[in-house]
Amino acid sequence: MKKIILNVKINSTQITWSYYPNGSLLSENTCPGNPDTKVYLPDTENLVFTKQ
């Protein structure tokens, strides 16, 4: 199971999050024809997102 946790609202335009990948929901068996099953999310804690 993958988990995303929204940690802290720093201010009105910024939040932090933590992303924990534990396996994949897609595979060649469950999603044939799509060889790119890589998740393009940063695997890190306390990443800051800023609304622009």
Rank of each mutant, 00 (worst) to 15 (best):
N46F: 06
E28W: 02
T37S: 06
Y40T: 08
I15P: 00
N46G: 07
N22V: 07
Y40A: 09
M1W: 09
P32D: 01
S24M: 08
N7Y: 02
E45A: 10
S27K: 02
N22C: 08
F49G: 12
I4R: 03
S24K: 15
V8D: 13
S27I: 00
Y20F: 14
T37A: 03
K51H: 10
P35E: 07
T44E: 13
P32E: 04
E28D: 14
V48L: 07
P35K: 05
Q52G: 11
E45V: 04
S12K: 13
T16G: 00
G23T: 02
P32Q: 03
I10L: 13
T44G: 04
P42D: 13
K9G: 10
I5Q: 12
K51Q: 11
L6E: 10
K51Y: 12
V8M: 05
L47Q: 08
D36C: 05
I10M: 03
T50I: 05
Q14S: 14
D36A: 06
S24V: 06
W17D: 01
E28Y: 03
L41F: 09
I15F: 10
N29Q: 14
W17Y: 14
E28K: 07
C31A: 12
K38S: 08
S18D: 15
L47I: 04
T37V: 11
V8W: 03
N22T: 07
I10V: 15
L41S: 08
G23V: 02
E28L: 03
L6A: 12
N29W: 06
P21M: 03
S18I: 03
L26W: 09
N7D: 15
D36G: 00
T44R: 11
G33A: 09
P21L: 01
P32T: 02
Y40V: 05
D43K: 12
K2S: 14
C31I: 00
C31G: 00
L47R: 02
N29K: 15
W17N: 08
T16L: 06
L6N: 10
K2E: 14
G33M: 09
T37Q: 11
Q14F: 01
P21D: 01
P42E: 14
V48Q: 04
V39R: 04
N22D: 14
N11E: 06
T37R: 12
I5G: 01
K38T: 11
K2F: 13
E28T: 05
G23K: 04
T13G: 00
K51T: 07
P35Y: 09
F49Q: 10
N22A: 11
I15V: 15
K3E: 08
Q52T: 12
P21Y: 01
L6T: 15
Q52V: 15
D36K: 04
S12G: 04
L26M: 12
S12H: 08
K38C: 00
E45F: 03
D43F: 03
E28G: 07
G23F: 03
